[in-house]
Design a binder for these strands. Structure first.
Length: 496
RNA sequence: GCCCCCAUCGUCUAGCGGCCGAGGACGUGGCCCUCUCAAGGCCAAAACGGGGAUUCGAAUUCCCCUGGGGGCACCA
């Protein structure tokens, strides 16, 4: 296989330090779409070299979140693969070996500077309005001497030896060439004093060993891209195609969302965390569609996509490098659209947990009858019990003020209830053919507006001013219960 | 402070030199439909940040400014 037609291999490499959010989900999505589109392998790699920040539950949440979005991988910690292990914490020796190689080649050096000296150095530099960077004190300590000091027990880190002259240019697929002066690239630490490699070394080593062809990652990596290029060059390895995605900005467009702001969002029914979105009533199809379109587009009009359509349509060329503000109202729209596209049985099953969460015992058979009449009325799965919970209530408790319709008084509404009862009780059954014609005749007879007559019935039968279509609802509730509820409303109105 | 990235309606975006007196979508306003609420249909308001340059011709190319964002850890 020649250079330009090697297999597409991409990776999503999250750090298990927190929760999977929108930005991570999108990065994973684009990686996944590329692979599915081009044919190739998707690798999940866990970057857990920092044991201090490790969060026990994070890895599982990442896996759950990705699965929820419909993303799956070919190689990863949970499935193995030919280039494992896929958890960096299990690859410590590999990184040490490559770090040694860099030392031997003269591309890295041992550094014995104390953190005290380093922070003092940084303080002085900032005072002089310079950018904080390593001053090079240990840069030229001969390797033999350094190894003696290490043998004597001195603590050390390994730093990459950056050239101080010239410039480095790296090509990013959507931004073109990025050039920086070498003197602005610090002698970054690549191995910590505890022996663990840092991202800059570990990721480059793994990407090479795992034969990654395209690196799609967040733009927060652009500043260290030249360093990564230099590291790859020191090893003599091929470079992947670099693709740096834009960041997500808060809805106002002013900056990234802070931890605090992210936590506060939930109060408004939104969240940037994937697993929260599910609980909030969003369907995965909508979330996938939504994040796919923040930073990528297909053409000037198509925007409703399911996963397979996304795969068909995806191309790197349509990626957009500019930062995008998160627009939750558009997510609500996508959610409504995708909910309306679901099959009845599917939707019925998906709303069931939300009824249970709200304390209703909702059987699937009834749910399947309700689903068609609420499908286009809910913008989120969580809204289903709010609008249709009364179907599972033994009795409803309408408010008198709701029962009395605009332009009418209680006595008039009581009369409507009385007459409705007579009409509906005389029917063999209430369904889509029996009930509405007769009731419309009553509207004529009383010379009232449909809304007034149906309004009394709606509140009496559902207990709510807002409900799914009246007659379909009554059919599901059943004639006996409907009549009982009308009778009850009639009593309330007469007593008023 | 230094380095880097980005720049079309409020927001997400189409546009890759003439098809643009700038298209779509969300949201907003109005109308229609209508048993409530939705959904749906129609209409409207709404943008190329500024200045130079290149060109017969620039939203599209180049430069400067401005604005916004990201980075500057023994985190990723």
């Amino acid at each position: 296989m020649s250079e330009n037609q090697k297999e597409v291999r991409v990776r999503f490499a999250p750090s298990p330090t927190g929760r999977l959010h929108l930005g991570g989900g999108r990065t994973a999505l684009y990686n996944y779409l590329l692979v599915k589109k081009m044919g190739g392998k998707f690798i999940l790699r866990i970057e857990d070299t920092d044991q201090k920040r490790y969060v026990e539950t994070a890895e599982q949440e990442i896996i759950d979140g990705l699965h929820w979005l419909g993303i799956d991988w070919d190689e990863g910690p949970d499935k193995g693969g030919p280039y494992g292990p896929y958890r960096q914490s299990q690859r410590k020796e590999i990184y040490q070996r490559y770090a040694e190689q860099l030392i031997d080649q003269g591309d890295a050096f041992y550094c014995f500077c104390s953190t005290d000296r380093l922070s003092e150095m940084k303080r002085l530099q900032q005072q002089r309005k310079e950018f904080p960077h390593y001053d090079g004190l240990c840069r030229d300590i001969p390797v033999e001497e350094a190894r003696k000091r290490i043998a004597a027990g001195e603590s050390y880190v390994i730093r990459f030896k950056t050239p101080k002259e010239g410039t480095t240019t790296v090509r990013d697929l959507l931004r073109g060439e990025i050039t920086v002066e070498n003197k602005t690239i610090d002698d970054y630490i690549i191995v910590k004093s505890d022996g663990w490699a840092l991202y800059h070394l570990a990721a480059m080593v793994d990407d090479h060993l795992m034969k990654i062809s395209h690196v799609i990652r967040g733009s927060e990596w652009i500043p260290t891209l030249p360093l990564h290029h230099l590291i790859l060059k020191a090893f003599g390895w091929d470079e992947p195609v670099w693709i740096h995605l834009s960041v997500f900005l808060k809805p106002s467009g002013k900056g990234k969302m802070s931890k605090r702001e992210s936590a506060d969002l939930i109060k408004d029914g939104y969240s940037i965390f994937l697993t929260d979105l599910k609980d909030l009533g969003y369907v995965d199809e909508a979330v996938t569609n939504w994040i796919a379109l923040m930073g990528w587009s297909y053409d000037d009009r198509t925007e409703i996509f399911n996963m397979s359509q996304l795969i068909d349509a995806f191309s790197l060329e349509h990626l957009n490098p500019s930062p995008a503000a998160i627009n939750f109202t558009k997510l609500d729209y996508f959610n409504g659209v995708h909910i309306r596209m679901l099959e009845i049985d599917d939707l019925a099953q998906r709303i069931q947990p939300y009824f249970e969460a709200d304390g209703y015992t909702a059987d699937l058979d009834t749910l399947k009858k309700i689903t068609p009449i609420i499908q286009e009325r809910i913008a989120g799965l969580d809204e289903a019990p709010k609008i249709a919970g009364f179907f599972f209530e033994k009795e409803v408790h309408p408010k008198l003020e709701d029962l009395v319709q605009k332009g009418l008084d209680a006595a008039q509404c009581a009369d409507i209830a009385t007459k409705s009862y007579q009409i509906l009780s005389a029917l063999p059954v209430i369904d889509k053919d029996h009930g509405e014609p007769e009731m419309r005749a009553l509207v004529e007879e009383l010379a009232l507006k449909p809304a007034q007559v149906f309004g009394v019935l709606r509140v009496a039968v559902t207990g709510q001013k807002i409900s799914p279509p009246l007659f379909e609802s009554m059919e599901i509730i059943g004639q006996d219960v409907v009549l009982e509820r009308i009778k009850n409303a009639e009593k309330m109105l007469k007593a008023a």
